[in-house]
């Protein structure tokens, strides 16, 4: 609770927190917020200007833009939530085993990480989707594949430095089992820093997901997703530029909120500010 209070003491961070929560709520309650079905095609109503009925107008297939925007929050937040959870699970296990075990296991796992780190992330993600086929599941898989190694390496470093701390040594002397030692005495020290890193990365991953969807490799139309909406609207840049404007703004605001939140979280947890972030 004190953490939350420190976090919310800054004005910008408070704003970012509110924005992030708002997007989260929109994602959860999207169907309740708009009476229109985001996939409901009505060609007689296509490319309508904003009106009472359609607050932000309709797109080229006569679908309500507002409803699609609201439902788009689900695709973005949902996919990123799965991605972050999977990355944390994978990297925490690999990183802590490598850091704790040391020796051959460590060397093997770290070379494995190095292999993944050699590739430019977006290009590798694109390649994987090219092989596996387009679609949300494969986008999630590809982004997890390209990002987990960064985390695993950082976690290994943290575990390595925590392993020799006195409280861990004391617990070991007291006869704590290895599994319990890692879970109870080492990982709690790792977690805050990884939380900061993950929050700072959420925006970055969202940009990857929507970027891939924009290219037609991610979420498949007709599903409402912000990147897909921009791709759908690109041919109307001369006549209906507002169709391009809204989904981009939605991505921008959401990504910005999470970036600011991550920054605030880092300042709150680590006032010296040495954890870095945005570094790729």
């Amino acid at each position: 609770m004190t953490l939350l209070r420190t976090l919310l003491s800054g004005r910008t961070t408070r704003l970012a927190f509110v924005a992030a929560c708002a997007v989260l709520l929109v994602a959860l309650f999207a169907p309740l917020l708009s009476s229109w079905d985001p996939d409901d095609i009505d060609l007689s109503q296509k490319l309508q200007a904003p009106s009472r009925e359609h607050l932000l107008g309709t797109d080229h297939l006569g679908r309500d833009v507002l409803a699609r925007l609201l439902h788009g929050a689900r695709a973005s937040l949902g996919s990123v939530a799965v991605i972050v959870a999977a990355i944390l699970l994978l990297s925490l296990s690999v990183g802590s085993v490598a850091g704790y075990a040391g020796g051959m296991v460590d060397a093997f796992l770290m070379r494995l990480c190095d292999t993944f780190l050699t590739f430019p992330t977006f290009i590798l993600a694109m390649f994987l989707i090219g092989i596996l086929g387009a679609g949300m599941t494969n986008v999630i898989l590809a982004i997890v594949c390209t990002h987990w190694a960064w985390y695993a390496r950082i976690i290994r470093g943290l575990v390595l430095s925590l392993k020799t701390r006195e409280h861990v040594l004391a617990a070991r002397v007291a006869g704590t089992g290895q599994f319990r030692l890692v879970m109870r005495h080492i990982l709690p020290g790792v977690f805050p820093q990884i939380l900061v890193l993950a929050t700072l990365d959420i925006g970055h991953m969202m940009l990857h997901v929507s970027g891939l969807s924009f290219l037609g490799l991610g979420v498949q139309p007709p599903t409402a997703e912000w990147g897909v909406m921009i791709n759908d609207a690109r041919q109307y840049i001369w006549t209906q530029p507002q169709l391009l404007f809204y989904p981009g703004l939605a991505i921008f605001v959401t990504v910005m909120a999470f970036n600011l939140l991550g920054d605030g979280l880092r300042d709150a947890l680590d006032p010296v500010g040495e954890t870095g972030g945005w570094g790729k």
Partner: peptide, 14 residues
């Protein structure tokens, strides 16, 4: 902050 948060495809169209 603006720069890292803006999706490049959207910026391009803008």
């Amino acid at each position: 902050f603006f720069g890292v948060s803006i999706p490049s495809f959207w910026l391009g169209f803008l």
